[in-house]
Amino acid sequence: MSLFEEFEQHIMKIESNIDSWISKLGLSYNHFAVLYSLMYSEEKNDLCTQKKICDEWYIPKQTVFNICKEYREKGWIEFAESAQDKREKILRLTDIGREYAKPIYQMSSQLSDKIFAKFGKRKTAQLFALLTELDELCKTEIDKIERKNENPI
């Protein structure tokens, strides 16, 4: 097994645990991501768009569009025009949507806080620093391979 495969297995185990927890809330990962993003944006007094959700959660545009359409039909969200780009819609929770999303958001935040508190500040900082370094190494090495392949010998 390569180190990338071993790394991926660790990530997949963590994701599986999180997916299992999300499904116990009665949601799919994608539905959770949309609700979480809407509530997070509201808590941070930030704007939320479908594009922002797609980019942050790596979810296809059509999937986010369909979930937003479903939530709009349920009366959970409303759309407003963006002042900067008339084609882009700002998403907002309605009162009903907020009642549904807020406990999910709070439970998720509490879970994250508990996990990382138990993991410890030092190890959390190390983990994120190492992941950032690994990401940069991946980008650098992939760029080298791509440049080499552009100029075949």
Rank of each mutant, 00 (worst) to 15 (best):
K44I: 07
K44E: 14
K44A: 14
N45H: 14
N45K: 14
L47P: 02
Q50M: 06
Q50S: 03
K52M: 07
E56D: 11
Y58M: 07
Y58N: 14
I59K: 05
P60R: 03
Q62V: 11
V64T: 05
F65W: 02
N66W: 04
N66I: 02
I67S: 02
K69G: 02
K69D: 03
K69Q: 07
E70F: 10
Y71C: 04
Y71Q: 05
R72L: 03
E73S: 15
K74R: 14
W76P: 02
W76Q: 05
I77A: 03
I77H: 03
E78S: 06
E78Q: 11
E78G: 08
E78T: 12
E78F: 12
Q84N: 08
R87M: 00
R87G: 01
E88H: 03
K89H: 00
K89P: 02
I90M: 07
R92F: 05
R92E: 03
L93N: 09
L93V: 06
T94S: 11
D95Q: 09
D95E: 14
D95N: 07
G97V: 09
G97T: 07
G97D: 03
E99D: 12
E99M: 11
K102P: 01
K102H: 15
K102N: 10
P103E: 15
Q106A: 12
Q106N: 06
Q106I: 15
Q106F: 08
M107L: 10
S108W: 00
S109L: 14
Q110V: 14
Q110N: 12
L111W: 02
L111E: 06
K114V: 12
F116T: 15
A117D: 15
K118V: 07
K121F: 01
Q126Y: 00
F128G: 15
A129P: 05
A129G: 09
A129T: 09
L130R: 14
T132M: 13
D135H: 13
D135L: 04
C138E: 09
C138M: 06
C138Q: 09
T140P: 00
I142M: 04
K144I: 04
K144M: 05
I145H: 09
I145F: 11
E146M: 04
E146Q: 07
E146K: 08
E146Y: 02
